[in-house]
Simulated assay, not measured.
Amino acid sequence: MENKNKNLAYFTLLLGIMYVISGILQTLKGAKLLPDDFISANLFPPELAGGLVLVVVGAVYLYGTLEFSKSSHEGRAYAYVGIVLSILFGAVYFLTFTADLINAWVLFAEGFEQWTPLDDFKPALYLGLLSVVVYAGWKKEFMLQD
């Protein structure tokens, strides 16, 4: 395995584990199998659907790691798809965050009096931001002609 694929394999393994663990915690809290105060609700809110999305994205990353371990070039495709999914879902959560911020601090909307930015700071948002940083650093590695 060449060096750039090795670094990408470590990245897919790390992000895959982070996504799967975050997703499982969110799903278990959403299904009421873990208490809401198990880990801060701001870091891992009880969301069933959001947790399942995180598990799926993590599975894409982990499958990319498996492909890298076979010295297959397909691992790069899974890493790329994982990054794209991370950024897309992170963007959705960022738009939700921005809308709630506007409702609370600009429009002073009813029901947002007690809202704080930590209320919408969810795993898909901060893991998506991490993926944006990684993509910005490695975007030259993802060429279509490869």
Rank of each mutant, 00 (worst) to 15 (best):
residue 65 T to F: 15
residue 25 L to V: 07
residue 37 D to Q: 12
residue 72 S to Y: 14
residue 32 K to S: 15
residue 99 A to V: 12
residue 72 S to E: 08
residue 63 Y to C: 00
residue 70 K to N: 15
residue 58 G to T: 11
residue 32 K to T: 14
residue 74 E to T: 13
residue 71 S to H: 07
residue 53 V to W: 11
residue 63 Y to M: 14
residue 52 L to T: 02
residue 78 Y to Q: 01
residue 55 V to H: 10
residue 80 Y to Q: 05
residue 74 E to M: 01
residue 35 P to E: 13
residue 36 D to K: 10
residue 82 G to R: 07
residue 73 H to Q: 15
residue 93 Y to E: 12
residue 29 K to L: 07
residue 83 I to W: 07
residue 44 F to P: 02
residue 55 V to Y: 04
residue 60 V to H: 09
residue 86 S to H: 00
residue 34 L to G: 12
residue 76 R to P: 01
residue 92 V to Y: 13
residue 51 G to T: 03
residue 43 L to N: 08
residue 58 G to V: 14
residue 52 L to E: 11
residue 66 L to T: 07
residue 70 K to S: 07
residue 96 T to A: 09
residue 72 S to T: 10
residue 71 S to E: 14
residue 88 L to T: 13
residue 96 T to R: 12
residue 94 F to T: 06
residue 99 A to S: 10
residue 26 Q to L: 09
residue 54 L to W: 00
residue 46 P to C: 00
residue 54 L to F: 04
residue 69 S to A: 15
residue 76 R to Y: 09
residue 31 A to N: 14
residue 94 F to R: 06
residue 79 A to T: 07
residue 90 G to M: 05
residue 67 E to D: 06
residue 101 L to I: 01
residue 88 L to E: 04
residue 34 L to R: 05
residue 30 G to E: 09
residue 59 A to E: 01
residue 61 Y to H: 13
residue 64 G to N: 06
residue 42 N to S: 14
residue 79 A to S: 13
residue 66 L to Q: 08
residue 60 V to D: 10
residue 65 T to G: 00
residue 78 Y to M: 06
residue 71 S to M: 11
residue 63 Y to I: 12
residue 97 F to C: 07
residue 79 A to Q: 02
residue 93 Y to F: 06
residue 89 F to A: 05
residue 53 V to C: 04
residue 49 A to Y: 12
residue 76 R to V: 15
residue 38 F to Y: 15
residue 28 L to A: 06
residue 34 L to I: 05
residue 63 Y to N: 14
residue 36 D to W: 05
residue 59 A to R: 04
residue 25 L to G: 05
residue 33 L to R: 15
residue 65 T to D: 05
residue 101 L to T: 13
residue 50 G to A: 02
residue 52 L to A: 11
residue 49 A to P: 02
residue 30 G to P: 06
residue 69 S to W: 13
residue 70 K to Q: 13
residue 31 A to L: 15
residue 55 V to E: 10
residue 31 A to G: 12
residue 94 F to I: 01
residue 75 G to Q: 01
residue 55 V to W: 02
residue 40 S to D: 14
residue 95 L to P: 09
residue 49 A to S: 03
residue 66 L to D: 06
